[in-house]
Amino acid sequence: MNTNHRPAAASLLKWIGVGLLSVTVVPLLAVVFVLPFAGRVAAAFDYSADLATPQVTPDFSIAHTLDFFFGSLLSTSTQSFPSGTITGKVTGGGTISADDARIPPRSRSFGYVAMGQVVIDSATGASNCTPATPCPAKGHLNYVNHTTGVHINGEVTEITNFQFFATPPGPTKGTATFRGTDTKSGCGTFTVSVTDNGEPGTNDRFGIDCGGETTFGQRQHSGGNSQIHPPQAK
């Protein structure tokens, strides 16, 4: 009886050894191999993430079935969005405004980068970031009011709103709001809200509030571009 158990025990020990070796050596090899071309590997995984969208969960509702068979004729939903945690990224550079006489064209210049981990709702394209529960972010803002000379400059620390209106394979569109602290003019916490309405950026919008500096909500660009970037894997 005992002699029958020995091979089984030896086999078990062997596989435990292989398992331990796998979880220690393989990750080490993976890191060593990936170091010289980390960027390309990351880009490849980003690309895969983009291709994977929209990630549609099975939906057998009547509305979805009608939409599936009759498409735009009976369209009840138009797009699904990537689900789960992604890197939300928004960049922009330009001037305002083209739609408000209080802010003549080219009287305000801006340049910004804001990015952070956000969790996207696949049904609405909205994220988990809210003013009450902001998502940690990094980036920077430069803004100049050429009429008054106010220069707002500071690190971006929070995203309080991030929502896709459309994602690849078509153009990416959406809106975002982010916050940070000004270190130049002394206006305190700045809140910037932007909307990407597609390319070129003529219909994009930018707005800022910081102390007494305000654009009275989002104003249409008089030049430049704001971009909500396509979803990237976390």
Partner: peptide, 22 residues
């Protein structure tokens, strides 16, 4: 001139962002 820009540079030489110069 007047300028506005927001750019993210990646270590692999790729980048994303916007540049505006009047």
């Amino acid at each position: 001139s007047q300028f506005g820009k927001g750019v993210v540079l990646n270590p692999d030489g790729s980048a994303t962002g916007d540049f505006y110069n009047v």
